[in-house]
Design a binder for these strands. Structure first.
Lengths: 210, 210
DNA sequence: CATTTGCAGTAACAAAAGTTACAGTTTTTT
DNA sequence: AAAAAACTGTAACTTTTGTTACTGCAAATG
């Protein structure tokens, strides 16, 4: 585990903290599609991503979903952090976007390290900053962009996070993430294909403009 | 200043910290409508609200605006905090919703107190939590609600923050906050009036359901 | 191999939101 | 007092998004 830890966090944390993480953290693994954390779950530990990617979703009372953002190696979820420290339930759902490896850190250590290590404090604040920024970007897309732009942006983000131009998704899955309908997605995808920005295949979308 | 400080923050901060705040903080005053902090401003201090209310806005490249949330007594802006600590430019605009009194705390002290006072650490984390929660609510309204619901919710929030059922606003001002057009606002306001939820007058809207 | 299921394409229509234009007020300015 | 500016209401129309329904095709299943 130490080797993997160093690759993802060696540049931010000092040797001693890495050792502590290795010692107290619990290594976990989630298969693609697995729900790592759900809405209303009580959270008592936070994840440090080693490999893979996680998508964070919001849901309303009717069960409509919306993708908030992706997490990748070196990230943690500030919303989870916030839940941990405030002893509240999770406001979001975390789903493995790909097969994912991560380390879970218990709340007690989070607080302890905040007092003990400056690098950890910085990491925590940095995480809050990143997540706030990503939430702002999400708000931007919702408030200022039409569905066609949102869709293209989504495809580009997803391609980046999966490190592949070819996305193995159905139109329905895309529709869920964007909280719209399958028909709307099919329609706009066709338009994007006409414009030469993507290529449509059965169960897969190839994104050209990255 | 101490008296005012105690009223707003006496229950959260210990005596010693209150004294430090009184000593290093700079008391400021902003008239209704005044821009307290703008997009791309470099931020080196964070505000603690004593009296009044501030609205936080987002803007895109075309100049379209969107209200994110309100701050009131006892609040601080986690986005500002985040900017301070990360030495980055402001991502949002802060405008005095009413005449407002607040204390500005320089970055150096923010960091110093984070190490020194547990109550301050809690306050900082609590602020992050509140702001993340409010951003999530903003996202909910954008992603899951139609304009009529968003409008009613906006009016209720605004009435609450201004501690008055009667809002002195024009339809155009409402339209700016919700990033829609004046005509749409007028149309939906009329519908809300028909449903008995509000009363329309020139330059003012009376909100019944709170 | 026949059947069922899941996926994509598209038409036709409905609802929500945005746009343009103009009229009738009230308020402010000159 | 007359003119200009600001505010609201509304009609008519467009664009965007959502919904329903049906088709054809591919993949999975028995």
């Amino acid at each position: 585990m130490l080797q993997e830890l160093k690759e993802a966090y060696g540049f931010i944390f000092e040797e001693e903290l890495l050792k502590e993480i290795e010692h107290t953290g619990v290594l976990k693994f989630a298969r693609e599609g697995e729900i790592i954390m759900d809405i209303n779950d009580y959270i008592s530990s936070m994840p440090l991503l080693l490999e893979g990617a996680i998508k964070i979703l919001r849901e309303d009372k009717e069960g409509n979903e919306l993708l908030l953002y992706f997490l990748e190696r070196g990230d943690t979820c500030a919303l989870t952090l916030s839940c941990c420290l405030g002893q509240t339930k999770s406001e979001v759902r975390a789903v493995a976007e790909r097969d994912t490896r991560f380390i879970m850190i218990p709340v007690s250590k989070i607080e302890e390290w905040t007092a003990k290590y400056k690098s950890w404090r910085n990491f925590v604040f940095e995480s809050y900053h990143s997540r706030l920024t990503e939430m702002l970007e999400t708000i931007d897309t919702l408030a200022f962009m039409n569905m066609d732009k949102r869709l293209l942006r989504y495809l580009q983000d997803k391609a980046k996070i999966n490190q592949s131009e070819e996305l193995q998704v159905t139109h329905q899955q895309v529709a869920y993430d964007l909280n719209t309908s399958r028909v709307v997605v099919s329609r706009l995808l066709k338009k994007l294909e006409m414009e030469g920005k993507i290529l449509l295949q059965r169960n897969s979308i190839v994104v050209h403009e990255l």
